[in-house]
Design a protein around this nucleic acid. Structure first.
Lengths: 157, 157
DNA sequence: ACGTATTATCTCGCTGAGCGATATTATCGC
DNA sequence: GCGATAATATCGCTCAGCGAGATAATACGT
């Protein structure tokens, strides 16, 4: 394991790109925390909101259990998150008519606006360089990101 | 603000790349949490360790205050983080000889190995596609990441 | 040199997020 | 209907991080 330390040089251009990607990930986390604080929420609440918005976009109806699993929380923690979001008027609990054990989570319009106010400018600025890329360049970006995602999701050796 | 909602279509290819980047950021966070749990640490501890390793690589001598600022913690929280890292034998406190108010944080070799065991495989897999790229493709990836980083670090409109 | 302001870190008490265990309520198979 | 199962909620607890203030070393004006 100590051998790994000398595997790469510090000025390795590949490493530089990796560090760039890592910086993006780190900053993303910081921005999420800042956004949360700015709106009287916690990081978990923001993540929950995003989960819920993603689910809605995917046409999945989100339940408490679904959300808890997505956030890696147990039922107690999940209830607490939903309580907070409900108190902020961002989400409302709706009993499922067909299975009345289930609680469906309805994302309020206000939350959607909040989500867009968070991601909107970020998206615009981030993708602003893409129109200047040709097919191969765009494909390269996509491939690199996909590879990074695979590396992160696959179990380490 | 409601106008933002209709600004982009869901199948916008630009948005797809943004989602890919966002997924990378999210997964990075999850992996960090998993790594932390695996080694009896908290996410903050891992982030602290990375901060310290980065500082060492940059030739900065890390103090408690420096670390706290980097993590967005106040002094009480910072002390707690260092306590935990010290208890795990990953970091040791060394009084600065020239300014004896300061506590320098020395990263133990064990921590460096830990860092490499975390990032090593991730780096290898992530950058594995880069050798197949030509100059323009590599530059495109770099530019895209840099733009994303700028978008994240600049204040939102 | 000397008191005062400043800087760096730590201690104390507290709030609150999230956990484990358990309770409550609803559905399903028999 | 009735136990078994599933979905969510409640209770009590632990511990990360905060605010306020303590401690200790340094800088600085006079």
């Amino acid at each position: 394991m100590t051998a790994a330390r000398s595997r790469r040089k510090h000025d390795d251009p590949d490493l530089e790109i990796f560090h760039l990607l890592r910086a993006v990930a780190v900053e993303y986390g910081l921005r999420q925390a800042a956004f949360a604080a700015e709106h009287g929420m916690h990081v978990t609440d923001v993540r929950a909101l995003i989960r819920l918005l993603d689910a809605e976009r995917a046409g999945i109806d989100a339940t408490a259990g679904f959300l808890g699993a997505g956030l890696g929380l147990n039922s107690a923690g999940t209830t607490a998150v939903i309580d907070r979001l409900e108190r902020l008027g961002l989400v409302s609990r709706v009993r499922d008519v067909h299975d009345r054990r289930r609680v469906l989570l309805k994302v309020e319009d206000h939350a959607k606006d909040l989500g867009w106010s968070y991601f909107g400018p970020l998206i615009d600025k981030t993708v602003s360089v893409l129109p200047g890329f040709d097919e191969r360049e765009t494909a390269a970006v996509r491939l690199f990101l996909q590879t990074a995602l695979d590396a992160l999701t696959s179990q380490p050796t």
